[in-house]
Design a protein around this nucleic acid. Sequence first.
DNA 1: TATTACCTTATTATCTGATAATATAACAGT
DNA 2: ACTGTTATATTATCAGATAATAAGGTAATA
Lengths: 245, 245
Amino acid sequence: MNQQNPKLTPRKGPKRNLFAHVVENLGKRIVTGELNPSVPFPKEADLGREFGASRSVIREAVKALAARGMIESQTKTGIRVLEAMHWNLLDAEVLNWRYSTMPQAQFYGELFEIRLMIEPQAAAFAAKRGTIQEIALIGEAFEAMTHAGMNKVSGIDADLLFHRSILAASHNPLLLQMGNLIAVGLYIAHKISSESFVVFLPKHKAVYDAIKRRDAVAAHDSMEHLLSETREFMNQHIKTIPAHA
Amino acid sequence: MNQQNPKLTPRKGPKRNLFAHVVENLGKRIVTGELNPSVPFPKEADLGREFGASRSVIREAVKALAARGMIESQTKTGIRVLEAMHWNLLDAEVLNWRYSTMPQAQFYGELFEIRLMIEPQAAAFAAKRGTIQEIALIGEAFEAMTHAGMNKVSGIDADLLFHRSILAASHNPLLLQMGNLIAVGLYIAHKISSESFVVFLPKHKAVYDAIKRRDAVAAHDSMEHLLSETREFMNQHIKTIPAHA
DNA sequence: TATTACCTTATTATCTGATAATATAACAGT
DNA sequence: ACTGTTATATTATCAGATAATAAGGTAATA
């Protein structure tokens, strides 16, 4: 009965998906530190008033954030933000919230540090353990990259698929979790420089070839090389880009 | 009004925390594959009947699982389980569900592969970037380990704190996420062999000393050594243990 | 036959207004 | 100062609505 008035929310306002809107709004406020463990968190009733949402929606949103380790809710005590060390930073949404509220270079730096720890070893595992079918999927992703040309979206998709296929071929389910991280990384990379993945096609091929011929050491090193070069390339371009949207 | 009857749930039954019980029950059924993308997921109404819970509780539980990437819910379509690649496997709860429903050795193997990728480099970063205060915390955690003696719980706590402090000193927030993974790993390790962390005290000290003297290479190598030795030790003991509880 | 437009329906999304449980705070008694 | 009791604010759960939406069926049309 509250937010329905079209004059109050004339356009662009969160019409449907109230739940998602509340989650995103609170999530972003938490990652920016506007809501933090030290300040009192709004009560369910306050949130309902603020968003013009019923208590059900608010409670569901609170549970969704709690499942990501960002808040905790207790009878009588109310809701409170947890320390950042408890957050599920590899969750796709949390990654996006952080990305959209952090200095681009810093976020990108964090991302690549992890990728450099994970992906070379994952490539080595893929070379050692990947089935023929799994390795064929890596090849298909590479083919898709070559055919994407300058098409940005399909380029990102293919690039992401390439890296995800390697994680899948490594036969460690925990590694697949890193896919989200790579996805955000690629999104940023292509935003910074759309031709980046064309430039690095040969280096992707080197990784694929190494995996295909079961050369774990070469797979490791070529992946490490690809990532280092990409990071270097981005560091040179990132300063030319103003603060992102 | 349904499950309240004390005769139906005489003891041990999920009296309070209905929400947590539903989340855990569904979560475990999903990780075991009993509920998977191919089979139709129960509707909200069915779940409410099964758990003797109101729709509110069911919906909140669904949102909590959806936030972990395990299910998706859509009007008219209903709920469906997502492919495992979308799950937040590093979430503390998901880790526990998987641990309690997987062969111990396999789970432990997955875990240590990741730890070996992450922690040596994290130790190197800690040596390079850690503040004096952060490194002091690592030292305190080590002291706590030495004083824990054979006290299992405080030993695990101190051990976990030791590794977490190193992650924190690495100054990459994404690495802190790995803390959950280490926590489960330590829990299993001490279950397999309670004296393990006494045996490895000197190797922990080596890591701490290297970080304290800002020797990144030594920090990396000593952490790698500690983890490799621990894994080896566990592999020798793990077969003597029957399937866990 | 194939395609499009419309209608029906099952299911989740949201709202409203209750009662119950519980942790903090205030208070009283020693 | 300490300990036990009571009040109160807040979340937890319940119950029963209406609204929105996507899937499937049906009919009109080319």
